[in-house]
Design a protein around this nucleic acid. Structure first.
Lengths: 221, 221
DNA sequence: TCCAATTAACGAACACTGTACTTTACGAAC
DNA sequence: GTTCGTAAAGTACAGTGTTCGTTAATTGGA
Protein backbone atom coordinates (compact mmCIF):
# COMPACT_ATOMS: atom_id res chain seq x y z
CA UNK A 1 0.00 0.00 0.00
CA UNK A 2 2.27 2.77 1.25
CA UNK A 3 5.37 1.22 -0.26
CA UNK A 4 3.97 1.12 -3.77
CA UNK A 5 5.67 4.24 -5.17
CA UNK A 6 9.18 3.14 -4.18
CA UNK A 7 8.80 -0.54 -4.79
CA UNK A 8 11.76 -0.53 -7.16
CA UNK A 9 13.72 1.45 -4.56
CA UNK A 10 13.03 -1.09 -1.89
CA UNK A 11 14.34 -3.76 -4.18
CA UNK A 12 17.36 -1.69 -5.10
CA UNK A 13 18.06 -0.90 -1.45
CA UNK A 14 18.93 -4.54 -0.84
CA UNK A 15 20.92 -5.67 -3.85
CA UNK A 16 22.90 -8.03 -1.65
CA UNK A 17 20.03 -10.48 -1.87
CA UNK A 18 21.76 -12.96 -4.12
CA UNK A 19 19.83 -15.09 -6.54
CA UNK A 20 18.38 -18.33 -5.28
CA UNK A 21 20.02 -21.61 -6.15
CA UNK A 22 19.73 -25.22 -5.13
CA UNK A 23 23.07 -24.98 -3.35
CA UNK A 24 22.24 -22.10 -1.05
CA UNK A 25 18.78 -23.48 -0.38
CA UNK A 26 20.25 -26.81 0.74
CA UNK A 27 22.96 -25.08 2.76
CA UNK A 28 20.44 -22.82 4.48
CA UNK A 29 18.16 -25.76 5.16
CA UNK A 30 21.02 -27.71 6.71
CA UNK A 31 21.97 -24.84 9.01
CA UNK A 32 18.35 -24.62 10.08
CA UNK A 33 18.36 -28.36 10.73
CA UNK A 34 21.46 -28.01 12.88
CA UNK A 35 20.07 -25.17 14.95
CA UNK A 36 16.41 -26.16 15.28
CA UNK A 37 16.26 -29.85 14.50
CA UNK A 38 13.87 -31.56 12.16
CA UNK A 39 11.08 -29.11 12.95
CA UNK A 40 13.20 -26.28 11.56
CA UNK A 41 13.21 -27.99 8.19
CA UNK A 42 10.05 -26.52 6.74
CA UNK A 43 9.71 -24.76 3.42
CA UNK A 44 8.40 -21.62 5.08
CA UNK A 45 11.19 -21.35 7.64
CA UNK A 46 13.88 -21.94 5.04
CA UNK A 47 12.29 -19.34 2.77
CA UNK A 48 12.08 -16.83 5.61
CA UNK A 49 15.81 -17.07 6.26
CA UNK A 50 16.41 -16.50 2.55
CA UNK A 51 14.03 -13.52 2.69
CA UNK A 52 11.56 -15.00 0.23
CA UNK A 53 8.41 -17.07 0.11
CA UNK A 54 8.06 -20.81 0.35
CA UNK A 55 6.79 -21.16 -3.20
CA UNK A 56 9.97 -19.67 -4.62
CA UNK A 57 11.91 -22.72 -3.49
CA UNK A 58 9.95 -24.97 -5.81
CA UNK A 59 11.87 -23.60 -8.78
CA UNK A 60 14.98 -25.43 -7.62
CA UNK A 61 13.52 -28.35 -5.69
CA UNK A 62 10.70 -30.67 -6.66
CA UNK A 63 9.14 -30.95 -3.22
CA UNK A 64 9.94 -31.04 0.47
CA UNK A 65 10.92 -34.70 0.39
CA UNK A 66 13.50 -34.14 -2.31
CA UNK A 67 14.91 -31.22 -0.36
CA UNK A 68 15.22 -33.38 2.72
CA UNK A 69 17.20 -35.92 0.71
CA UNK A 70 19.57 -33.21 -0.50
CA UNK A 71 19.98 -31.86 3.02
CA UNK A 72 20.76 -35.31 4.36
CA UNK A 73 23.41 -35.93 1.76
CA UNK A 74 24.85 -32.47 2.38
CA UNK A 75 25.21 -33.32 6.05
CA UNK A 76 27.09 -36.50 5.16
CA UNK A 77 29.93 -34.43 3.70
CA UNK A 78 31.41 -34.30 7.18
CA UNK A 79 31.76 -38.08 7.40
CA UNK A 80 35.44 -38.94 7.26
CA UNK A 81 36.20 -41.42 4.53
CA UNK A 82 39.82 -42.34 5.06
CA UNK A 83 41.68 -44.76 2.85
CA UNK A 84 44.98 -45.57 4.48
CA UNK A 85 46.29 -48.75 2.96
CA UNK A 86 48.51 -49.50 5.91
CA UNK A 87 45.75 -49.72 8.47
CA UNK A 88 43.71 -52.83 8.79
CA UNK A 89 40.47 -52.90 6.85
CA UNK A 90 38.56 -53.69 10.02
CA UNK A 91 39.79 -50.67 11.88
CA UNK A 92 39.06 -48.40 8.95
CA UNK A 93 35.60 -49.82 8.57
CA UNK A 94 34.91 -49.21 12.25
CA UNK A 95 36.15 -45.66 12.07
CA UNK A 96 34.05 -44.91 9.02
CA UNK A 97 30.88 -46.24 10.60
CA UNK A 98 31.69 -44.52 13.85
CA UNK A 99 32.09 -41.21 12.04
CA UNK A 100 28.78 -41.83 10.28
CA UNK A 101 27.11 -42.56 13.59
CA UNK A 102 28.51 -39.46 15.23
CA UNK A 103 27.22 -37.22 12.44
CA UNK A 104 23.76 -38.69 12.80
CA UNK A 105 23.88 -38.54 16.58
CA UNK A 106 25.26 -35.03 16.99
CA UNK A 107 23.23 -33.13 14.42
CA UNK A 108 19.64 -33.07 15.52
CA UNK A 109 17.40 -34.43 12.81
CA UNK A 110 20.05 -36.19 10.77
CA UNK A 111 19.11 -39.59 12.15
CA UNK A 112 15.46 -39.01 11.27
CA UNK A 113 16.50 -38.06 7.76
CA UNK A 114 18.70 -41.13 7.50
CA UNK A 115 15.69 -43.34 8.07
CA UNK A 116 13.20 -41.44 5.90
CA UNK A 117 15.53 -40.80 3.00
CA UNK A 118 16.41 -43.05 0.10
CA UNK A 119 20.21 -42.74 0.12
CA UNK A 120 21.14 -42.09 -3.49
CA UNK A 121 23.09 -38.84 -3.04
CA UNK A 122 26.80 -38.71 -3.91
CA UNK A 123 27.97 -38.74 -0.30
CA UNK A 124 25.71 -41.64 0.61
CA UNK A 125 27.04 -43.53 -2.36
CA UNK A 126 30.64 -42.74 -1.46
CA UNK A 127 30.13 -44.14 2.03
CA UNK A 128 28.47 -47.26 0.66
CA UNK A 129 31.23 -47.68 -1.89
CA UNK A 130 33.90 -47.42 0.77
CA UNK A 131 32.23 -49.95 3.05
CA UNK A 132 31.86 -52.37 0.16
CA UNK A 133 35.53 -51.85 -0.59
CA UNK A 134 36.62 -52.60 2.97
CA UNK A 135 34.47 -55.71 3.13
CA UNK A 136 35.96 -56.85 -0.15
CA UNK A 137 39.46 -56.36 1.21
CA UNK A 138 38.39 -58.38 4.24
CA UNK A 139 37.48 -61.28 1.99
CA UNK A 140 33.71 -61.06 2.34
CA UNK A 141 31.96 -62.50 -0.69
CA UNK A 142 29.65 -60.56 -3.02
CA UNK A 143 26.23 -61.31 -1.59
CA UNK A 144 27.34 -60.98 2.02
CA UNK A 145 28.90 -57.61 1.19
CA UNK A 146 25.85 -56.34 -0.67
CA UNK A 147 23.49 -57.34 2.11
CA UNK A 148 25.96 -56.58 4.88
CA UNK A 149 26.48 -52.95 3.96
CA UNK A 150 22.74 -52.48 4.23
CA UNK A 151 22.63 -53.97 7.71
CA UNK A 152 25.59 -51.93 8.88
CA UNK A 153 24.17 -48.62 7.69
CA UNK A 154 20.71 -49.49 8.94
CA UNK A 155 22.17 -50.33 12.33
CA UNK A 156 24.09 -47.08 12.61
CA UNK A 157 21.08 -45.01 11.58
CA UNK A 158 18.49 -46.69 13.75
CA UNK A 159 20.82 -46.87 16.73
CA UNK A 160 21.55 -43.15 16.37
CA UNK A 161 17.85 -42.44 16.11
CA UNK A 162 17.09 -44.43 19.22
CA UNK A 163 19.88 -42.83 21.22
CA UNK A 164 18.82 -39.34 20.13
CA UNK A 165 15.26 -40.06 21.25
CA UNK A 166 16.58 -41.39 24.52
CA UNK A 167 18.75 -38.28 24.90
CA UNK A 168 15.88 -35.88 24.30
CA UNK A 169 12.93 -37.41 26.14
CA UNK A 170 13.49 -36.16 29.65
CA UNK A 171 16.98 -36.04 31.09
CA UNK A 172 17.64 -39.61 32.23
CA UNK A 173 15.31 -41.27 29.71
CA UNK A 174 12.42 -40.95 32.10
CA UNK A 175 9.79 -42.68 30.00
CA UNK A 176 11.63 -45.97 29.70
CA UNK A 177 13.34 -45.91 33.07
CA UNK A 178 10.28 -45.17 35.16
CA UNK A 179 8.27 -47.80 33.31
CA UNK A 180 11.03 -50.32 33.97
CA UNK A 181 11.03 -49.45 37.66
CA UNK A 182 7.38 -50.33 38.13
CA UNK A 183 7.36 -53.56 36.15
CA UNK A 184 5.56 -56.71 37.19
CA UNK A 185 8.31 -59.07 38.31
CA UNK A 186 6.14 -62.11 37.62
CA UNK A 187 5.20 -61.27 34.06
CA UNK A 188 8.52 -59.79 33.03
CA UNK A 189 11.23 -61.48 35.10
CA UNK A 190 13.94 -61.23 32.47
CA UNK A 191 13.41 -57.53 31.80
CA UNK A 192 13.41 -56.73 35.50
CA UNK A 193 16.61 -58.62 36.14
CA UNK A 194 18.36 -57.10 33.12
CA UNK A 195 16.98 -53.58 33.26
CA UNK A 196 20.30 -52.06 34.32
CA UNK A 197 22.13 -53.51 31.34
CA UNK A 198 19.30 -52.57 28.98
CA UNK A 199 19.70 -48.88 29.73
CA UNK A 200 23.48 -48.74 29.93
CA UNK A 201 26.07 -47.87 27.34
CA UNK A 202 26.17 -45.44 24.48
CA UNK A 203 29.29 -45.29 22.36
CA UNK A 204 30.55 -48.49 23.89
CA UNK A 205 27.26 -50.12 23.06
CA UNK A 206 27.38 -48.93 19.49
CA UNK A 207 30.84 -50.42 19.09
CA UNK A 208 29.66 -53.67 20.59
CA UNK A 209 26.81 -53.90 18.10
CA UNK A 210 29.10 -53.12 15.21
CA UNK A 211 31.39 -55.88 16.34
CA UNK A 212 28.48 -58.29 16.63
CA UNK A 213 27.24 -57.59 13.12
CA UNK A 214 30.66 -57.74 11.57
CA UNK A 215 31.46 -61.00 13.32
CA UNK A 216 28.18 -62.34 12.01
CA UNK A 217 28.96 -61.27 8.47
CA UNK A 218 32.36 -62.93 8.63
CA UNK A 219 30.80 -66.18 9.88
CA UNK A 220 27.97 -66.16 7.33
CA UNK A 221 29.56 -68.34 4.68
CA UNK B 1 -29.85 -23.73 12.22
CA UNK B 2 -32.68 -25.84 10.90
CA UNK B 3 -31.96 -28.70 13.24
CA UNK B 4 -32.21 -26.60 16.36
CA UNK B 5 -35.76 -27.52 17.37
CA UNK B 6 -35.11 -31.25 17.34
CA UNK B 7 -31.62 -31.24 18.71
CA UNK B 8 -32.60 -33.62 21.47
CA UNK B 9 -34.37 -35.75 18.89
CA UNK B 10 -31.30 -35.95 16.72
CA UNK B 11 -29.32 -37.11 19.69
CA UNK B 12 -32.00 -39.59 20.67
CA UNK B 13 -32.27 -40.85 17.11
CA UNK B 14 -28.76 -42.18 17.30
CA UNK B 15 -28.41 -43.71 20.74
CA UNK B 16 -26.04 -46.26 19.26
CA UNK B 17 -23.28 -43.68 19.54
CA UNK B 18 -21.59 -45.32 22.46
CA UNK B 19 -19.48 -43.33 24.86
CA UNK B 20 -15.88 -42.70 23.97
CA UNK B 21 -13.14 -44.68 25.64
CA UNK B 22 -9.44 -45.19 25.23
CA UNK B 23 -10.05 -48.68 23.92
CA UNK B 24 -12.38 -47.79 21.06
CA UNK B 25 -10.27 -44.77 20.16
CA UNK B 26 -7.18 -46.95 19.84
CA UNK B 27 -9.10 -49.63 17.97
CA UNK B 28 -10.56 -47.12 15.54
CA UNK B 29 -7.18 -45.51 15.05
CA UNK B 30 -5.62 -48.88 14.29
CA UNK B 31 -8.28 -49.71 11.70
CA UNK B 32 -7.64 -46.35 10.10
CA UNK B 33 -3.92 -47.10 10.11
CA UNK B 34 -4.56 -50.42 8.40
CA UNK B 35 -6.77 -48.95 5.69
CA UNK B 36 -5.07 -45.63 5.01
CA UNK B 37 -1.57 -45.96 6.38
CA UNK B 38 0.22 -43.54 8.63
CA UNK B 39 -1.50 -40.55 7.03
CA UNK B 40 -4.85 -41.89 8.20
CA UNK B 41 -3.67 -41.62 11.78
CA UNK B 42 -4.67 -38.03 12.44
CA UNK B 43 -6.74 -36.83 15.35
CA UNK B 44 -9.32 -35.31 13.04
CA UNK B 45 -9.76 -38.40 10.89
CA UNK B 46 -10.07 -40.67 13.91
CA UNK B 47 -12.61 -38.32 15.46
CA UNK B 48 -14.61 -38.17 12.24
CA UNK B 49 -14.99 -41.94 12.18
CA UNK B 50 -16.18 -41.80 15.79
CA UNK B 51 -18.58 -39.02 14.80
CA UNK B 52 -17.05 -36.45 17.09
CA UNK B 53 -14.45 -33.69 17.13
CA UNK B 54 -10.72 -34.04 17.48
CA UNK B 55 -10.62 -32.26 20.81
CA UNK B 56 -12.86 -34.89 22.38
CA UNK B 57 -10.09 -37.44 22.07
CA UNK B 58 -7.88 -35.50 24.44
CA UNK B 59 -9.96 -36.63 27.38
CA UNK B 60 -8.64 -40.16 26.99
CA UNK B 61 -5.27 -39.57 25.40
CA UNK B 62 -2.60 -37.03 26.34
CA UNK B 63 -1.55 -36.19 22.78
CA UNK B 64 -1.11 -37.63 19.31
CA UNK B 65 2.23 -39.19 20.17
CA UNK B 66 0.82 -41.11 23.08
CA UNK B 67 -2.04 -42.32 20.90
CA UNK B 68 0.45 -43.53 18.31
CA UNK B 69 2.24 -45.52 21.01
CA UNK B 70 -1.03 -47.15 22.07
CA UNK B 71 -1.91 -47.93 18.46
CA UNK B 72 1.48 -49.51 17.86
CA UNK B 73 1.19 -51.73 20.88
CA UNK B 74 -2.36 -52.65 19.89
CA UNK B 75 -1.06 -53.79 16.52
CA UNK B 76 1.53 -55.99 18.21
CA UNK B 77 -1.22 -58.13 19.68
CA UNK B 78 -1.10 -60.16 16.49
CA UNK B 79 2.53 -61.15 16.97
CA UNK B 80 2.66 -64.84 17.80
CA UNK B 81 4.55 -65.53 20.98
CA UNK B 82 4.86 -69.29 21.14
CA UNK B 83 6.54 -71.08 23.96
CA UNK B 84 6.97 -74.72 23.00
CA UNK B 85 9.61 -76.24 25.19
CA UNK B 86 10.35 -79.05 22.77
CA UNK B 87 11.43 -76.83 19.92
CA UNK B 88 14.89 -75.38 19.86
CA UNK B 89 15.26 -71.91 21.30
CA UNK B 90 16.83 -70.72 18.06
CA UNK B 91 13.93 -71.75 15.91
CA UNK B 92 11.43 -70.19 18.27
CA UNK B 93 13.41 -66.97 18.38
CA UNK B 94 13.47 -66.85 14.60
CA UNK B 95 9.76 -67.45 14.35
CA UNK B 96 8.97 -64.76 16.89
CA UNK B 97 11.08 -62.18 15.12
CA UNK B 98 9.71 -63.23 11.77
CA UNK B 99 6.17 -62.79 13.03
CA UNK B 100 7.13 -59.38 14.39
CA UNK B 101 8.63 -58.43 11.05
CA UNK B 102 5.58 -59.58 9.11
CA UNK B 103 3.24 -57.49 11.26
CA UNK B 104 5.37 -54.40 10.67
CA UNK B 105 5.75 -55.15 6.97
CA UNK B 106 2.13 -56.01 6.17
CA UNK B 107 0.29 -53.30 8.07
CA UNK B 108 1.07 -49.97 6.44
CA UNK B 109 2.44 -47.56 8.99
CA UNK B 110 3.37 -50.06 11.66
CA UNK B 111 7.04 -49.93 10.76
CA UNK B 112 7.03 -46.14 11.00
CA UNK B 113 5.41 -46.40 14.40
CA UNK B 114 7.95 -49.00 15.50
CA UNK B 115 10.74 -46.52 14.89
CA UNK B 116 9.04 -43.43 16.32
CA UNK B 117 7.59 -45.09 19.38
CA UNK B 118 9.19 -45.82 22.73
CA UNK B 119 8.17 -49.46 23.20
CA UNK B 120 6.85 -49.63 26.75
CA UNK B 121 3.40 -51.05 26.02
CA UNK B 122 2.46 -54.50 27.37
CA UNK B 123 2.78 -56.27 24.03
CA UNK B 124 6.15 -54.71 23.32
CA UNK B 125 7.31 -55.79 26.74
CA UNK B 126 5.99 -59.31 26.23
CA UNK B 127 7.96 -59.63 23.00
CA UNK B 128 11.10 -58.29 24.63
CA UNK B 129 10.65 -60.61 27.58
CA UNK B 130 10.26 -63.62 25.33
CA UNK B 131 13.38 -62.78 23.31
CA UNK B 132 15.37 -62.34 26.49
CA UNK B 133 14.08 -65.67 27.66
CA UNK B 134 15.12 -67.46 24.46
CA UNK B 135 18.58 -65.90 24.55
CA UNK B 136 18.93 -66.96 28.15
CA UNK B 137 18.01 -70.52 27.23
CA UNK B 138 20.61 -70.31 24.49
CA UNK B 139 23.28 -69.52 27.04
CA UNK B 140 23.82 -65.88 26.11
CA UNK B 141 25.08 -63.88 29.06
CA UNK B 142 23.31 -60.94 30.65
CA UNK B 143 24.87 -57.98 28.91
CA UNK B 144 24.85 -59.62 25.50
CA UNK B 145 21.18 -60.47 25.96
CA UNK B 146 20.25 -56.98 27.11
CA UNK B 147 22.05 -55.31 24.25
CA UNK B 148 21.24 -58.05 21.76
CA UNK B 149 17.48 -57.83 22.10
CA UNK B 150 17.75 -54.16 21.24
CA UNK B 151 19.71 -54.89 18.08
CA UNK B 152 17.37 -57.66 17.01
CA UNK B 153 14.22 -55.54 17.40
CA UNK B 154 15.90 -52.53 15.84
CA UNK B 155 16.93 -54.66 12.90
CA UNK B 156 13.45 -56.06 12.34
CA UNK B 157 11.85 -52.62 12.53
CA UNK B 158 14.28 -50.74 10.34
CA UNK B 159 14.42 -53.55 7.80
CA UNK B 160 10.64 -53.61 7.62
CA UNK B 161 10.59 -49.85 7.23
CA UNK B 162 13.10 -49.98 4.41
CA UNK B 163 11.30 -52.77 2.59
CA UNK B 164 7.97 -50.99 2.91
CA UNK B 165 9.47 -47.84 1.43
CA UNK B 166 10.97 -49.92 -1.36
CA UNK B 167 7.60 -51.58 -1.94
CA UNK B 168 5.69 -48.30 -2.15
CA UNK B 169 7.98 -46.02 -4.12
CA UNK B 170 7.11 -46.98 -7.68
CA UNK B 171 6.66 -50.60 -8.55
CA UNK B 172 10.20 -51.97 -8.92
CA UNK B 173 11.86 -49.50 -6.53
CA UNK B 174 12.39 -47.05 -9.36
CA UNK B 175 14.26 -44.41 -7.41
CA UNK B 176 17.09 -46.66 -6.30
CA UNK B 177 17.19 -48.90 -9.35
CA UNK B 178 17.32 -46.16 -11.96
CA UNK B 179 19.99 -44.33 -9.98
CA UNK B 180 22.04 -47.51 -9.81
CA UNK B 181 21.70 -47.99 -13.56
CA UNK B 182 23.30 -44.66 -14.38
CA UNK B 183 26.17 -44.84 -11.91
CA UNK B 184 29.71 -43.77 -12.65
CA UNK B 185 31.67 -47.01 -12.94
CA UNK B 186 34.93 -45.28 -12.08
CA UNK B 187 33.79 -43.61 -8.88
CA UNK B 188 31.58 -46.43 -7.65
CA UNK B 189 33.04 -49.68 -8.99
CA UNK B 190 31.90 -51.85 -6.09
CA UNK B 191 28.31 -50.61 -6.13
CA UNK B 192 28.06 -51.11 -9.87
CA UNK B 193 29.38 -54.63 -9.73
CA UNK B 194 27.16 -55.57 -6.78
CA UNK B 195 24.01 -53.69 -7.72
CA UNK B 196 22.08 -56.85 -8.51
CA UNK B 197 22.72 -58.34 -5.10
CA UNK B 198 22.00 -55.05 -3.37
CA UNK B 199 18.44 -54.98 -4.67
CA UNK B 200 17.65 -58.68 -4.36
CA UNK B 201 15.97 -60.61 -1.61
CA UNK B 202 13.17 -59.85 0.78
CA UNK B 203 12.14 -62.49 3.27
CA UNK B 204 15.25 -64.50 2.50
CA UNK B 205 17.32 -61.42 3.11
CA UNK B 206 15.63 -60.73 6.43
CA UNK B 207 16.40 -64.26 7.56
CA UNK B 208 19.98 -63.87 6.48
CA UNK B 209 20.37 -60.70 8.54
CA UNK B 210 18.78 -62.33 11.56
CA UNK B 211 21.21 -65.18 11.26
CA UNK B 212 24.13 -62.78 10.95
CA UNK B 213 23.18 -60.86 14.08
CA UNK B 214 22.46 -63.96 16.12
CA UNK B 215 25.76 -65.56 15.08
CA UNK B 216 27.46 -62.34 16.14
CA UNK B 217 25.77 -62.32 19.50
CA UNK B 218 26.78 -65.93 20.12
CA UNK B 219 30.40 -65.14 19.24
CA UNK B 220 30.54 -61.96 21.32
CA UNK B 221 32.01 -63.39 24.50
C1' DT C 1 -36.33 -35.85 44.96
C1' DC C 2 -33.57 -32.12 43.96
C1' DC C 3 -29.46 -29.60 43.87
C1' DA C 4 -24.43 -29.43 43.19
C1' DA C 5 -20.23 -30.86 41.30
C1' DT C 6 -17.70 -33.28 38.14
C1' DT C 7 -16.51 -34.27 33.60
C1' DA C 8 -17.29 -35.65 28.85
C1' DA C 9 -18.18 -33.48 24.52
C1' DC C 10 -18.12 -29.93 21.36
C1' DG C 11 -17.03 -25.96 18.31
C1' DA C 12 -14.15 -22.34 17.28
C1' DA C 13 -9.72 -20.60 16.96
C1' DC C 14 -4.55 -20.50 16.59
C1' DA C 15 -0.37 -21.37 14.54
C1' DC C 16 1.47 -24.15 11.76
C1' DT C 17 2.35 -27.45 7.49
C1' DG C 18 3.11 -28.56 1.97
C1' DT C 19 1.85 -27.26 -2.39
C1' DA C 20 -0.76 -25.28 -6.60
C1' DC C 21 -1.92 -21.39 -9.10
C1' DT C 22 -1.71 -16.62 -10.65
C1' DT C 23 0.48 -12.48 -11.21
C1' DT C 24 4.46 -9.55 -11.38
C1' DA C 25 9.17 -8.27 -12.72
C1' DC C 26 13.44 -8.80 -14.88
C1' DG C 27 16.94 -10.00 -18.43
C1' DA C 28 18.25 -11.32 -22.71
C1' DA C 29 17.53 -12.11 -27.60
C1' DC C 30 15.75 -10.53 -31.87
C1' DG D 1 12.14 -1.31 -28.55
C1' DT D 2 9.43 -5.11 -28.24
C1' DT D 3 8.74 -9.75 -27.03
C1' DC D 4 9.24 -13.81 -24.53
C1' DG D 5 10.80 -17.14 -21.14
C1' DT D 6 11.37 -17.69 -16.54
C1' DA D 7 12.52 -16.52 -11.65
C1' DA D 8 10.20 -14.61 -7.86
C1' DA D 9 6.38 -13.44 -5.13
C1' DG D 10 1.80 -13.50 -3.29
C1' DT D 11 -2.35 -15.72 -2.47
C1' DA D 12 -5.15 -19.54 -1.52
C1' DC D 13 -6.46 -24.26 -0.15
C1' DA D 14 -6.68 -28.19 2.50
C1' DG D 15 -4.66 -30.22 5.89
C1' DT D 16 -2.21 -30.79 10.77
C1' DG D 17 -1.98 -30.82 16.47
C1' DT D 18 -3.50 -28.53 20.28
C1' DT D 19 -5.86 -25.12 23.51
C1' DC D 20 -9.70 -22.78 25.30
C1' DG D 21 -14.31 -21.62 26.76
C1' DT D 22 -18.85 -23.26 26.79
C1' DT D 23 -22.54 -26.63 26.85
C1' DA D 24 -24.61 -30.96 28.11
C1' DA D 25 -25.06 -34.99 30.79
C1' DT D 26 -24.32 -37.82 34.54
C1' DT D 27 -23.39 -38.89 39.01
C1' DG D 28 -23.13 -38.33 44.22
C1' DG D 29 -24.93 -36.54 48.33
C1' DA D 30 -28.51 -34.32 51.35
Amino acid sequence: MEGEPNMTDSRRSRPAKGPLSKEIIVKTAYELLESEGISGLSMRKIAKVLDTGASSLYVYVKNANELRAYVFDYGLMKVEITNLKNESWKKELFELLHSYFRILFDSPGMSELALMTIPIGPNSLAITEQILHQLNVGGVDAKASAWGVDILLLYAASFAYEQVARKDKGRNCNAVRTSFETLDTVRYPMIVSLKEDMLSGEEERFQWGLDVILQGILHSK
